[in-house]
Each structure stands twice: as structure tokens, then as C-alpha cells.
Design a protein around this nucleic acid. Structure first.
Lengths: 343, 343
DNA sequence: AATAATTTTTTACGCGCGGAAAGTTTTGAG
DNA sequence: CTCAAAACTTTCCGCGCGTAAAAAATTATT
């Protein structure tokens, strides 16, 4: 195969019988050279498998092909899934995405943004931690780097925010639950880090008001990203303190619901919509595991395929058009009711 | 703050009243310059907040501070967790880790390794896909880049393999299960991609033989990384075909077990170790979600704290000592029995 | 205070590639 | 076959920094 080790583009150009600038053009855009030239380069590529030095490429280029992707917590399968989705779309668009996770830590989030700057990315797609984020740091980053926010919004920061219509989520579920049984009470964390939680609560309140029911909100203690544990501990506590005010509970998100299901199991409470069940539990997000809980969780699915597509498209539209400033855009996707056995 | 925008190290050196090589030395190792010099640089740093250009730094340096981390499937919380652990340790050691996921795809795995090469990493920590990996590609990568393998082994590839003593896992669980009830049958995928699955099966067979019981292996169809779904579908099928040969099932891993629990729920089979339960189900891995299944899953915990610590230490020992070749090392950690309600 | 040891400066080159300008060859339309 | 457009080659310079060698300056030692 490779008789001679190719050390740089100069050498590679010589073995392929071309000049370096032409080869350079090829790597920048294969369609920018004549078909016969392209064929010669690609033939040489098979023989010697050379790759341009990334660092040398990027240092002297105004805009790199780097893209930063930042999620608040990668150990959450929901974010792992959406990150994967976005990552793939970036690759398909010819960019080099790099994935980062804040691991729930605002300091780490700030540090990652700082390091990201050094990579001179063409753009970034970030889901901020939310309420605990260093808003100044995020906003400052967004001024220097074209950035699309997703999942969790910071008002007027970045090019755009792509997310879910959280109030609609709760409305949809409240409507379904109260149509098929008792109206739900709402189960959430006392101090949710994610701003979506507030919108979901408000959606619940609005829906209940609209349907003429009295809302009840159960707030449980807990901090951090161990939502399942918070839901379980809070569930136990609530059940021991006399239980919920109705036989139906709408959780702020699936992970809390998963914890609540565990609590119900521990307390011997049968969950589901069958006649012999004592409680209905619903979640929101369509977390990857929600289909495998016992009983499987009724929930609202986020359309993360559409969201990731839109987020990536918005970013690259701006990056590739070179626009300096465009009006901040907000796009919200509706959720879809996923009926399973838990409610 | 910054009256003058610093464009490069030359300018920064001049505003701090020093020469560029001295400043360069500082960024390479702050302790390599005199304390008074260090103070001047750091004072200037506060004023102008300059950062050396990463690409320029790396292009002309034999070894970068980059470290590649590759896991087979980041949407699996187990890998997300261990990746986070490893990532943090790399940062603490002063390196810049970059996280990648093969997403279960051997082609993507090969491509990532190729891209990783271009980053001239000082080292890499990778968990190969396993049986479906392009072994040649992985081995070739390991020859060029100091690499420690974890989770899933490829014989004699890389500097070392750090993993779990999988046969011991099964032995431990078989011993526990047969001591407290009927000996288990073994539930697994027909064609497991992960080589650990084979070791766990063998551990099961050995343990059963040692204890004088007749082993039974239930193999279920399914491919890919949707283990929960494979476990659920296989579970339904097995239960409809007459059920398991004993009232105790040891699953090859927690995710299969989670799916099996769902199948049992669908079939109305009560799982647990109480008198009124019809089946005991155990897993292996201590998956983050296993504590929240209904019933909570009895399983074997991998010591991923110890594994990640050892993997990172092994890598950096080699990288920093500059050793060319050292004997391949294999380190296996024992599992710990986590008793919950499912078995 | 003189000498040795350490640190810093000066100078210079190289890394691998981007990109511009001007000249040369190839291509394709008529 | 002619000629202009397109593609390619040649030649340069620059990016920001690493790094080496030698000279100069600073500190430490006796």
C-alpha cells in the first residue's frame, strides 16, 4: 500500500502529480476541481491515505468547520439522544462537532464555553443548564460565536431558541387525564433548575383553570440532577403524609415520574388505568426508558427529531450566509401524547 | 479592562514587558519561570485576558495535551457515567479530553478513530464496540497512539485493558441466587456484540457446574443496542412459550433485565423474592436506572470508579514517561452484589 | 566583589497549510 | 483551428507558536 509515508500536503500533491494549491482546493471543496483532477487525487488517496493536518488548516482560516455542542447532563439519556441526533446532522453537513457536557455544574459550563472559544468554532448549539447558568458568560459567548440555544431558553440570547411548547405539553396531558378520569395534581421539584419546569407548571394551572378544576401542586425537596431519586423520596414522603389529593398525578418530567413509580411500588400502590389500580401517573418528555417502566409510562413526546433538525438548520443558515445579525428567533414544537398503561 | 486587543503571543509578551519565548515557556509550564516573571505575566493576564492559539500550539508540537475518549454507546447511561468519570480525571490531570460515541456503529467507530488521529492525541481511552469492531482499525490506531482499552477487550491490543472480572460476576450472583432459592437460568441475547457477554455466560456455566446444578440458557433474538426492547420481546416470547425452567432468571446485563421486568409486568407475573412472587430476576452492571425498576433490580455493581481511575493512571504513566513499549497489562475488577427486591 | 549558576533575550528557523497574484496549460465552443 | 474561459502551476507571504542556540542579564554562592 503505502510505500512512502506522506508527511504533508506538499508530498501528497507530488505523488498525485499535482500542485499543492490544487490539492488544497480539493480538500476545501472536491467539486471545485476538474473531474479528472478529482479522480487523480482520489486515486492517490487510496494508495497513501493522507489527511490534512487539522491544526494547520484551522489556524490560518477565518472560520473553521468546528461546531460545539453542549448539553447540561449527558448521563441523562434524553440529552444523550438529542446530542447524538444533532451531532450526526452536523457531520452530514460537513462539520466537525465536538460534544461537551456541563454535568450539571455551572462552573464547568462556563469553563467549557471558554475552551470552546479557543476552538474558533463556526457555530455552537447549546442547551444551557438553565436557572443556575452564568447568564452573562453564556450571553457573552453567544456574542462572539453564532449560537443556537435548545431545550432551555435564555431570553434573547443567541441566534435562536429551539424548544418545546411546554405549556402545551401540560395542557394536552391535563385534557387527556381529566377526560378519562380524575383531573391530575401536579408533581414537581421545589426549585427546578430547568426553566421548562415553570412553563409546564403554568401550563398545568392554565389547563386546570380552563377546564374548571381546582389545581393542586405537590412540590418535593431535592437538588441536582438525580431526578429519579428526588421523585422517589418525594413520592414516599407524600404517600406517607396522606397521599395525593386525587388519584391522578402529572409529573413535571419523566424522570420524576420514574422515581414516583418506584415509590408507589415500595408503598404497595398499584399504578395504572385499570379498575383495580389506585393511582394514575403520567410524565412528560418520552424519556427513552419510559416505555420500560412498570407500568409503562404515559407521557408526552418531545419531537426531538424536528427540534434538532431545525436547530442545526438555523445555525448553518446563518453561518453559511455570513449574516452578522438577524432577529432572535424562537421556535417551539408541540408534544404528542403517548398513551401507555400508567395513566 | 482591555484597552488593546491582544492578537498573539508577541503582543502579549510586549504588554507584559517580556519576550515571547519566556511567555511561551510560562504557558507550557508556569513553574518554569522565575516567580517575579510569573507574577508579571499573571498581572498582564488579568488586564488583557489573552489565550494562546490552540491550533498554533499543537501543530508544531510532538505531543499535544489532547486525549480522546471513545465509548460504544453514549445514550446508555452506564457509558455516559463512566465517560464522565474518565473525562473529569483527564481534566484534573491537565489534559483536554474529547468525548466520542460510536453509537453502536462499527463504521462510525472506524471514522472516529481516523479523525482522532488527526488530533494528534497524547493518548486515548477507548471502549470498543466489541465483536463487531473493525479489529484491524482499532489495533492500527493503538499502534500509533498510546491507548488504554476499557469495558470491552480486544486481545493484546493497546497498552492495557481495564475491565471487570465478568466470570466472577456471574459466579457471585449464581452463588447468591442458588443459596437463597432455586438456581437461576441464564437470559441473554443470541448474538451478543459485547465480548463480556460470553464471559458472563461461561461464568454462569462454571458456577452451575461447581454447585452441581443443571444450567439452562435462554437465548433471545435481537440485534443492536436496544437491549431493553430485546429483553422485553424475548421475555414475552419465552413466557408465552411456557416460561423459564426455574423461578429464577439471571440476565446477562441490567438492560436486558429491565426489558424482562417489563415483559413480566405485561404478562401479569409478579417479580421479587417475597413469598407471593412467581419469578426472581437479577441483572449485572448496576445500571443507573436499576435502582428504580419495579421491583428494584438485584444486580452486580461494576466498580467503575476504580476502573476509570486505573485506566487514566495507566495511560498517563505511559504518556508522561515516554515509554515506547511495555508489556500489555490486563486489570480486572471484581463486582459487588447489590441486593434489592427483584431477587 | 568576583565568579558561577540560573534565567531571560535575541535571533532564527520550521510546522503545515491558506490564500493571493501572475503566468501557463487545458478545455470546450464556434 | 482559433480563441477565450476555465483550470492548474509557480511563487510568495503569512498565520501563531514551538524550539533551539547563543548572547546578555539577573540572581545566587563563596
Amino acid at each position: 500500500m503505502e510505500y512512502t509515508k506522506i508527511r504533508n500536503m506538499e508530498e501528497f500533491a507530488s505523488v498525485s502529480g499535482l500542485s499543492r494549491p490544487t490539492v488544497s482546493k480539493y480538500f476545501h471543496d472536491p467539486s471545485s476541481v476538474r473531474a479528472t483532477t478529482r479522480a487523480r487525487i482520489e486515486a492517490a488517496l487510496e494508495e497513501h491515505d493522507y489527511r490534512p493536518n487539522i491544526f494547520a488548516m484551522n489556524q490560518n482560516r477565518k472560520l473553521t468547520k468546528n461546531v460545539g455542542i453542549l448539553v447540561p447532563y449527558l448521563a441523562d439519556p434524553f440529552f444523550a439522544e438529542i446530542a447524538r441526533n444533532i451531532e450526526q446532522r452536523c457531520i452530514d453537513a460537513g462539520y466537525s462537532p465536538t460534544l461537551y457536557s456541563s454535568h450539571g455544574d455551572p462552573n464547568l459550563e462556563r469553563e467549557i464555553l471558554e475552551n470552546l472559544r479557543a476552538l474558533k468554532p463556526a457555530g455552537a448549539l447549546i442547551a444551557p443548564l438553565g436557572r443556575v447558568s452564568d447568564n452573562g458568560a453564556v450571553a457573552s459567548f453567544c456574542e462572539d460565536v453564532p449560537t443556537v440555544l435548545f431545550d432551555s431558553n435564555l431570553p434573547d440570547v443567541g441566534l435562536a431558541f429551539i424548544g418545546s411548547d411546554n405549556p402545551q405539553f401540560s395542557m394536552l396531558m391535563v385534557e387527556y387525564l381529566s377526560r378519562t378520569g380524575e383531573p391530575p395534581c401536579f408533581f414537581e421539584m421545589k426549585d427546578p433548575a430547568n426553566p421548562n419546569a415553570n412553563k409546564r407548571r403554568q401550563g398545568y394551572l392554565d389547563a386546570m383553570a380552563q377546564l374548571g378544576f381546582e389545581p393542586t401542586i405537590v412540590k418535593v425537596d431535592g437538588q441536582g440532577w438525580s431526578f429519579e431519586e428526588i421523585g422517589r423520596a418525594g413520592g414516599i414522603q407524600t404517600l406517607e403524609a396522606g397521599g395525593f389529593s386525587t388519584n391522578t398525578v402529572l409529573c413535571s418530567n419523566d424522570r420524576l415520574a420514574i422515581g414516583l413509580l418506584t415509590a408507589c411500588y415500595e408503598k404497595g400502590l398499584r399504578v395504572g388505568r385499570d379498575a383495580d389500580c389506585e393511582l394514575r401517573v403520567a410524565g412528560q418528555d418520552d424519556h427513552p426508558f419510559s416505555r420500560y417502566t412498570c407500568p409503562p409510562l404515559t407521557t408526552i413526546a418531545q419531537d426531538y427529531d424536528a427540534m434538532s433538525r431545525r436547530a442545526v438548520k438555523t445555525l448553518f443558515d446563518v453561518v453559511e450566509s455570513g449574516e452578522r445579525s438577524r432577529p432572535h428567533e424562537t421556535v417551539l414544537y408541540e408534544g404528542r401524547l403517548i398513551m401507555r398503561q400508567s395513566a
